[in-house]
Design a protein around this nucleic acid. Sequence first.
DNA 1: CAGCAATGATAATGCGCTTTATCTTAACTT
DNA 2: AAGTTAAGATAAAGCGCATTATCATTGCTG
Lengths: 360, 360
Amino acid sequence: MSNGRKRTTQSDVARLAGVSPAVVSAVIRGKGSHNIRVGDDTRLRVLEAMKQLNYVPDVVAQTLAGGKRRIIGLFSFEPVFPKEQNDFFRPFLLGVEKAAEANGYDLMLFTSVPVSGGRKRIYQQGINRLGLADGVILLGRNPPIDDLVRLEDEGFPFVYIGRKDAPDRTLSYVAADYRRATLEVIEHLHQLGHRRIAYLGEPQPIERHRDREAGYSNALQQGLVEANAEFRLRLAASDITDDVVSELLERSISAVVVEDIEQAEALYAQLANRGIAVPTDFSIGLLGEPDAPSQLNLDWSGFTIPREEMGYQAFISLLARLERKIAHSATQITLPCSFRTGATVGPERVTATPTYQSGV
Amino acid sequence: MSNGRKRTTQSDVARLAGVSPAVVSAVIRGKGSHNIRVGDDTRLRVLEAMKQLNYVPDVVAQTLAGGKRRIIGLFSFEPVFPKEQNDFFRPFLLGVEKAAEANGYDLMLFTSVPVSGGRKRIYQQGINRLGLADGVILLGRNPPIDDLVRLEDEGFPFVYIGRKDAPDRTLSYVAADYRRATLEVIEHLHQLGHRRIAYLGEPQPIERHRDREAGYSNALQQGLVEANAEFRLRLAASDITDDVVSELLERSISAVVVEDIEQAEALYAQLANRGIAVPTDFSIGLLGEPDAPSQLNLDWSGFTIPREEMGYQAFISLLARLERKIAHSATQITLPCSFRTGATVGPERVTATPTYQSGV
DNA sequence: CAGCAATGATAATGCGCTTTATCTTAACTT
DNA sequence: AAGTTAAGATAAAGCGCATTATCATTGCTG
C-alpha cells in the first residue's frame, strides 16, 4: 500500500460510489470546516465503497493539502533513549508523550541528525529536516546556540526544555526554578543553625548553574548567610582536594551547597578522609537530585526537578504558540522544584565560631 | 515558516537564482536518479539563493512527490516512555533508535492513537495514521490481532518486536528464542542433578509463553526431566497457594521453571512459609529476567533477553523489506537469549526420591 | 561541414488530497 | 408567480516538490 502496488485513492472510492472526489473527502473529514454537504444515503454509499476497497487516506497528501500535521518534533542533542542508568531525560520525554497523547498529536523523533564535531546539529548544510513537524521540542545539556538562533530567526516554533539564553533573542523555554530551589535549600540550612555556608559549583557554569548561584546570592542578600562567610568555589570534582577542606574549615564553614552530584560526592569523600562526618559535623546540600549512578548511594538533601511536568508544559506551551499562529512570541515558563530532606544535612554543630548559646 | 506566514518554496528560490524550479530540485537531490544536469556556477547560485531565503524543503511535499520518506514509525500498544521502574521496553527502543540513527532515518512515535476498550488501536474508524512512515515497528504485549491482520493485508510493511502469529498469515517479527533458552535453564538444572522439574506459567498463555513451554516439552523429550515428573501448572500469582507447594512436594519435584517474575516470587514466598529454602532445598529457574520491580530483589537464575539487539534487528529487517520493495514477504528472526546463573538455583538435594549416591 | 553526442536547462505533469467557488434543484416566502 | 433560501453536489485550483519528456547549445569526430 505504502510501497509496491498502487495505492487506492479517493478517486477510486468516488468512482465506485458514483460521486465526485470532493464528496469522499467531505465524508472523511466529517462535518464542519468545508462547505460541502453530503446526504445521508450518499454518505453511506461512500463509506461502503471505502470499506470495500480497503481504502486508507494518504496522510502525506492530506497534510500537504490541508496544512495541519499534528506532529510535534522531538530533537535531543543527546541520545533519546540513553542506555546508562542515567535516566535524566526520561521523565521529560514521558511528560511530552503524555501531553502529545492527550492532544492527539504524534511525536517525531529526529535521530537522523548530522553530527559535527561530536555534537548533534539541527542544520545539515543549511537544511533542517525538522520541517515535517509543526513545531519542535528541544532537549539536551549543551546545544550549539547557533542552531537555536537560526531556528528562532527562521520563525520555526520551538520550546527548549531547560533555560536557554541567546544573544539578542528571547527563546522559548520551560525551566525549573533553580534559584528559588537553591534559596530553599539554604533556608533549610539556616533553620538548622547554619550561618556560614559556601557554594561549590561547576568550573564552566551555564544557565542552570548561574541560576543556582543566583539563589546563593539571594541568600546572602537576605542575610541567611553571614556576609563574611561568602565563599564561592568553581572546581571540577577531581580538583576537590584536601586543601579545599582545609580552606572550608579555616573559614569556619559548616555547610556547603553543591551544584552537581559528582562534586558533592568528591567533597563528601574528602571530608570523610579527615574524619569529618556528614551530616553530624558538616552539612552538604545538593542543588538538585542525584542523576548519575551514585557510588556512595547517599540520601542527599536537595530538591527534585519537576521533569515530567516540564515536558508536559513544554508541549502545552508549544501548542499554544502554534494555535495562536504567532511565530515570534517567546514564552518562558518556570516551574518550582520540590525541596526534599535527606541525610546529608543536619543541625549546625557549634564549633569554632559559636554564634548562639549552645542549644540542643 | 511552518505556520503563520507563507513558506519559502522552491519557486521562490528558483526565481531568485534565475533558474527553473526543476533545477532547484535537482540541486537539492544531488547527482543521480534524475536526468537534470546543473552546471557548477548555477549550482552555487542556487545554493546561495537557498541560504539567502533561508529555504527549507518541505518534507511532506517531497514525500508526496515520490521521494523517500526515511521515516520509520514506532507504534507501541503500551506507553513508550513508561513511568514505572518497569523498563521492559526501553532497550528495544534504544536498539531501534541506534539503528535509525545509523541509517539516517527518523523515528515517528505514534502516540495519537485511538483507544478502544482500554487498548490502543492502529485503526481509527477504518483509518490508520501510520501512512506517513515508510514502515512501522510494532511493540507491546497484547496487540489486537485484528489490527495486525488488517495491516498485513493492506500490505503495509511492519515488523513486530516479539513473536506474533495470526491465522492464515505469516507476520514479520523479531523474537527471542524462548524455547531454546528454557531448554538451557532446564539443562542447567539437569547438570545440578535435578530430574523432577515442574513448569509454572501464566493462566492465559500467548506466543511467548507457549515458546517457553515448548522448551519444557523438548526437555521432556530429551529425557532431561523424568517422564513421570511432567507437571505443568498455569496459575495466576495470586493462586499460588500453600496447596501448590504441597502438590510439588508430593510429586517429589525439586525444581520449577517459572514464566513470570510475579509467579516466581509468589512461589518463593510460599516455599519460605514452609521453611523451604531456595536454592538450598529447592530451585527456581526464572524463564526470563525480572522486569517488574522485584519486592524480594533476588538474584534470579534465568536468562537475558537480547532486547536492544531485537530492536536493532527489527529495524534492519524492516529496512531490508522496504528496500526490496516486496510488500508481502515476511521475515522472521529469532535471536538467542543468554543464560545467566543467579542465586535461586542450586544442586539437587537428595530427599524423598534418591536417584544417586548422596554426593557432597 | 554534416552528423552526433554530451551538456545544461526548461515545461509540464502528477502525487492524493482539501477547499473555494459554482452550479442545480427543490423547498419556502410573501 | 416571482423571488429567495437551503440542500446536495461538482469542478477546478492548488499544496510543494520530483520527474519525465523535451529543447537549445556547444564540442567533437571523420
